[in-house]
Design a protein around this nucleic acid. Structure first.
Lengths: 338, 338
DNA sequence: TAGTATCACTTAACCGGATAATCGCAGTCA
DNA sequence: TGACTGCGATTATCCGGTTAAGTGATACTA
């Protein structure tokens, strides 16, 4: 591996000259530039990004942090995967790479050094749980951070998220317009902001339509744990007064509801309407094509990336949450009640 | 951001001492060590990975390179996603991060510098096409490279891949054992090694069972382009003598075959058996649960990562392809012919 | 003709750490 | 007392680049 000094020696110039050639300083004699460029190619020289990063404090790399890499849910999860795709695509546009970080939220001791060691120019944090202490630590340390979560506004960091309230409103309106009056909700973890948000949005939406809610029609389940949501759904559908319409906290939960309905012999959508949230890739192709609220994951990832680029370049960051509007995708799991 | 010099000054010691404290040199007075550690915590100091990387030439970061980030197929593709998950998990085990690289294969001019600038300690290249010139370039430059592709053996670089031949053999045997004698094949791009490999394995498998193949029952289609494979499948199934069993080059193609069969009113599996390759996540949950050859993607990614770690650490790399055995997963798309 | 720009490049300091070599200072031993 | 050892810390150099400041030569100016 030749260094810049090797190239300089071979050209009989100083390393500064080589550096200027590489970085396009235009006060050089064209002939010199050519000579150096030729040597560079000839020697197969490539400047070290690390050394370069050390001096100009730019690695042209963004970090992205998920929870729980160990488990199945992190990268494989369609939500994460969609976001990641948007982040990578938008990063490529500005010539940056993306590094994946994977510590657990709770391990601030382990995670923080990695996140703060300048290996990346900034970090996108995906859906941090409410109770992590990483966010304030990073912020106080001056790290460039953007989150994908509406909650982070409280820390004064820029963020992007889907407009959960709007999405839930779309869902409820859709069911209402199909004639439903008794709508149940089976949501994800309440300690995740989206969990809390979608729940409260659901109640607000019911209120705005003057619909009432039976307490037993409100279930808090899990976004990822399919077996948990399956049994929760089964319990809900086995009630003496089962709902005829269910808004699920996300598609995965919706799938569990559908599975429970199938196993209980409940016809979809004749006896039960189900609507999800996210529109993960499976949603269109599974047995019952799922009606859902489509979350534009790639756009969200891309928006977060652009926001991060702004923060890094010093443009005063808007410390508010950029809300991206979801859309209603009507497929085969919703219909009018009998 | 405090530097090591700031810490040293605050402790009235030299930077060397601080460095030794950080890196656990044991010839230090316990009292000194404590004092420095306390200051480090107090000042919220984190050593720069970049500076560190510059001196000890280790970034604790692996790179992973896919084709075509711009298009839908790269990260989102279940194959890539599965590999990535394995790579990230195995990297985390050895304390490394993963950086995603995304240039196109053809742009060696642009890609090479990024891949060779020491930002990563080594690179995992996923399914390079046969005609890229990046591999030999990297190799001749002394980069640490591992590929996921059986083809790369020709360049003398270590690699990992699924045992394509074995998988195809499993598929054909399964169909044969169900009583099929006329088996068609609709494969992916022939310029991808797996495309060529699965094709020749298919022919070999037929031979070993002394089965013959109608020329029109051999179709070369596309791994990713669903509309192309859909029309190719439709053409195949519309032949005067349509096959009663099809081995598809991958699951995506198999889905296209299923879609074409549905649109042509062909019953699955009564009139047509379909078997895929990969076992992507969708395979189990789509309308007809797909019988397929399951590729252990995460294990492959993890194996590649471990191989790369070996190469980096200097353990003489086995310049041969590590084959991981796939398994047959029987679901609902195969059955005996009428 | 001396003074001043301009040009084309070099010098030298710096980025933030790692580490081999060195050094001062007990304590040991002959 | 002088030589030798070990310990604990320091000094100095290096990693591979970037870049502000400086330099020597030529060209221009008054």
């Amino acid at each position: 591996m030749p260094t810049i000094r090797d190239v300089a020696k071979a050209c009989n110039v100083s390393t500064a000259t080589v550096s200027y050639v590489i970085n396009g300083k235009n006060t050089l004699l064209p002939e010199t530039r050519e000579r150096v460029l030729r040597k560079i190619r000839e020697m197969n020289y490539h400047p070290s990004a690390v050394a370069r990063g050390l001096s100009n404090k730019r690695m042209n790399t963004f970090g992205i942090l998920f929870d729980n890499v160990g488990s199945e849910i992190a990268i494989w999860h369609p939500y994460t995967s969609g976001i990641l795709q948007g982040v990578v695509a938008a990063s490529a546009e500005v010539g940056c790479n993306v590094t994946i970080f994977t510590e657990l939220w709770r391990n601030a001791e382990i995670s923080l050094p990695k996140l703060r060691d300048q290996r990346t120019d900034g970090i996108i944090i995906v859906a941090p749980p409410s109770d992590t202490d990483i966010l304030p630590s990073l912020l106080s340390a001056g790290s460039k951070v953007v989150t994908i979560s509406s909650e982070s506004v409280s820390f004064g960091m820029p963020s992007v998220d889907v407009d959960n309230a709007f999405g839930i409103k779309l869902a409820v309106r859709h069911l209402r317009e199909m004639g439903h009056r008794e709508i149940a909700f089976i949501g994800g973890q309440i300690n995740m902001f989206s969990g809390a948000m979608r729940l409260s949005a659901f109640q607000a939406a019911l209120d705005s339509w003057s619909l009432s809610l039976l307490p037993e029609h409100l279930v808090l389940s899990s976004y990822e744990d399919s077996s948990a949501s399956y049994s929760d759904a089964k319990r809900l559908l086995s009630l003496p007064n089962p709902p005829a319409a269910v808004v699920a906290g996300n598609d995965q939960i919706a799938f569990s509801v559908l599975a429970a309905a199938r196993d209980l012999g409940i016809a979809i959508p004749a006896q039960l309407s189900v609507i999800g949230f996210d529109d993960i890739a499976d949603a269109a192709t599974t047995q019952h094509a799922l009606t859902t609220i489509k979350q534009p994951l790639r756009e969200i990832g891309a928006a977060a990336t652009r926001l991060l680029a702004q923060v890094i370049s010093g443009d005063c960051p808007p410390a508010e949450c950029l809300l991206v509007e979801p859309t209603l995708v009507v497929r085969a799991t919703t219909g009018s009640p009998r």
